[in-house]
């Protein structure tokens, strides 16, 4: 199963390097990594999708991320209710004769044509990973020349609670928090 992690990091130079260096060093697989600014200045939010089926390994990834000094919090939302989205741009080489059939497939898949020019069409879509993959499959009958996927971004549904992802102030709480995390990965 894929593991989805939402990571808050200090927006310091080299932070991306630190994260990817850790994944590479530990031989963990990153499937996608999206980073952008968050609601707080100086702090970025990342969505990282890792491909590790084993729960123990996923725990290792979680705690190794947390160990990085510039990482503020890590939330593993793999099995929590959340909104998952990916955005894609697809370029198809096609003369005007193909435009209507491309338009039909696009529309049926809930995507949009955003550019039609000399010999090429660009389609955009936002949706769950599966829907994007389906769209690409359905368009594969045409002459696809470029695909640009962003990778997944994700957000938990409901009112946000800091207590779940940030180590809290009181040491007692922090110890319980760590134990809860340990149990969630290693006692299943």
């Amino acid at each position: 199963m894929k593991q989805t992690l939402v990571v808050l990091v200090d927006d310091k130079p080299g932070i991306l390097n630190r994260i990817s260096s850790m994944f590479r060093r530990r031989n963990f697989n990153i499937e996608s990594l999206v980073v952008g600014s968050s609601e707080t200045p100086g702090i970025s939010r990342m969505t990282i999708v890792a491909n590790e089926p084993d729960s123990t390994k996923r725990g290792n990834i979680y705690f190794n991320l947390l160990n990085l000094v510039n990482v503020i919090s890590v939330e593993d939302i793999t099995s929590l209710p959340c909104i998952n989205r990916e955005y894609v741009l697809i370029k198809i080489h096609a003369g005007s004769g193909k435009w209507s059939s491309i338009g039909e497939v696009t529309k049926n898949n809930g995507a949009r044509i955003v550019d039609m020019g000399k010999g090429s069409v660009i389609i955009e879509a936002a949706g769950e990973e599966k829907a994007i993959t389906e769209l690409i499959e359905n368009l594969s009958q045409f002459n696809i020349k470029e695909i640009m996927r962003t990778g997944k971004i994700a957000m938990r549904i409901g009112v946000s609670q800091d207590s779940d992802n940030i180590v809290s102030e009181s040491q007692e709480d922090a110890a319980h928090w760590a134990e809860k995390k340990i149990i969630s990965y290693f006692n299943s």
């Binding site: 123990t56 290792n60 705690f63 947390l66 160990n67 760590a178 340990i182 290693f186």
Partner: peptide
Amino acid sequence: IDLSEFNKNVHVDLPVHC
């Protein structure tokens, strides 16, 4: 004291982060 050490090489029954 290092959370990332638990179950890195050997499966343990009681990881104690302290």
